[in-house]
């Protein structure tokens, strides 16, 4: 088990590096705009934004946020990080299930004296580790970015909540992707359906932002389990955390059952 985890970490660190690079660029460079906008304009921008149709704002994750304030601006930035985290999580999940089939090395690993469950568990564990480090880095970069631009850090709580929330949503997408990948015979189909699911959930999140935050849609929309509105008020929805983890656990459970019976073949 330990060998497999180690091997997985070693062979997947490259994509991790690229994704982290994207994250670093997004978070570290992301605050540049905040400066520009803070100095040159008055309070009018907020008034102007308020007049825009909600959908326009929702598409950029700006609905109901005052992007002239540091917490509001950070919330918009983290909404983009959420998209990045979700897509990376989907790739991690699909990779854990399908990589050996794609590389045509499945006969090699699945004839080792370890059960399929053990092997998949090790792979999922490695994927979760990458996601965890990715989220910790999100937290770290956010803390580093503020002093770089000489912005007073008044949002420590929010930074923690946003990073943690994005991590949980990431875990959800990772589990979903693992489940979807065990469902389809072709590896390609698994990741494709995963991407569709991502798009569907994204649209659902926009719809949620557009309609005055309906509870029922929120339940179906993991990207809005931890809303900027809540986090800015230093609230963290533990109920949604529980639901997200429960659904993830369920997806994993089904994934392992599927995987045990899956007819493994090349691609």
């Amino acid at each position: 088990m330990k060998n497999i985890v180690q091997h997985e970490l070693k062979s997947n660190w490259k994509p991790f590096l690229y994704w982290t690079l994207g994250l670093a660029v997004l978070v570290l460079a992301g605050f540049v705009k905040f400066l520009g906008f803070d100095a040159s304009t008055g309070a009018d921008v907020s008034a102007l934004m308020a007049q825009f149709p909600k959908v326009f704002l929702a598409m950029f994750g700006m609905a109901g946020l005052d992007i002239q304030s540091l917490p509001g601006y950070y919330a918009v930035l983290e909404n983009f990080v959420l998209l990045l985290t979700s897509v990376y999580a989907i790739q991690l999940g699909a990779n854990a299930v399908s990589r050996e089939s794609i590389d045509k090395t499945y006969e090699f690993i699945f004839t080792k004296p370890r059960t399929r469950n053990t092997i998949l568990a090790a792979k999922v564990l490695a994927a979760l580790l990458f996601l965890t480090v990715f989220s910790v880095l999100n937290f770290a970069f956010s803390h580093i970015a503020l002093p770089i631009y000489k912005i007073q850090n008044t949002i420590s709580t929010q930074i923690f909540y946003f990073s943690f929330a994005n991590y949980i949503v990431g875990v959800f997408f990772l589990s979903l992707s693992v489940f979807l990948s065990t469902l389809f015979a072709r590896a390609e189909t698994g990741i494709k359906v995963g991407n569709y699911a991502f798009m569907g959930f994204y649209v659902l999140a926009i719809i949620y932002d557009m309609l005055e935050s309906p509870k029922l849609i929120q339940l179906l929309s993991p990207m809005r389990y931890f809303t900027a509105h809540d986090i800015l008020a230093s609230l963290f929805s533990w109920t949604h955390l529980l639901i997200a983890l429960l659904v993830s656990a369920l997806a994993m459970q089904f994934a392992f059952v599927n995987f045990r019976k899956k007819d493994l073949s090349a691609v």
Binding site: P15, Y18, G22, L84, V87, Q91, A94, N95, S98, R99, I102, D103, A187, E188, I191, K192, G194, N195
Partner: peptide, 15 residues
Amino acid sequence: RVRTIAGTATAFAFG
């Protein structure tokens, strides 16, 4: 090698 097409395409676009 190109592992998955959907994955590479997403990575390209996001990059």
